[in-house]
Design a protein around this nucleic acid. Sequence first.
DNA 1: AACCGGCCCAACCGCCGCCGG
DNA 2: CCCGGCGGCGGTTGGGCCGGT
Length: 200
Amino acid sequence: MRKPCCDEEGTNKGTWSKQEDQKLIDYIQTHGEGCWRSLPKAAGLHRCGKSCRLRWINYLKPDIKLGNFAQDEEELIIKLHALLGNRWSLIAGRLPGRTDNEIKNYWNSHIRRKLMKMGIDPENHKLIHLHRPSSSAAAAATSMEKKPNSNNLNLDLTIAFDPSLTPNPNSAEPSHKNNNITTKEMDHQSQSAPTLPLFN
DNA sequence: AACCGGCCCAACCGCCGCCGG
DNA sequence: CCCGGCGGCGGTTGGGCCGGT
């Protein structure tokens, strides 16, 4: 049985204090990232390694871009999600300064709701209730399809509906077990083809 | 002013893949 | 080849905030 990583007595949980942040920053600036397991003890932090890694990657790293998402970032997230599904780390890799956790939160709190309002299933990026055109959601979605710029979400919906752009029709499934695209492959793709077909 | 419900988001949890022994 | 440790990932939680009543 795998032991929980944070079962040690006296390990802090919850929100990080400024002092803890500073200790972590100081340590990483001196010693660099890595060996998260032993980092807390070495840095004098009563945290588990995972917690330190998460805090550093999501908030303390110098190149993190905090604050609201720009319109183009939002559009990019939607397009990448249509292509990659819930593979947040891959999506984050395409958005400099943004983290997977931040994108995941933004998706779940903002974009998902926005798509639902537009009558689009956020899981597969298809119209909801196409068989019931009289429903308000479908009517709104149909309207959106004809006039994609008719509200503040400036997204070309035709992209989301093109199945040829989705390598795995079940790409929106939560599991990454049957994920045929590895991080390395994605990196290779991004190097060899900086512009995804989506953006044409 | 008090209460309530919904939203936001930082952080935790548990699983999986990779890698070294 | 097998096993265990570690890092990474996505899903989920829960506390705080905010607007409405």
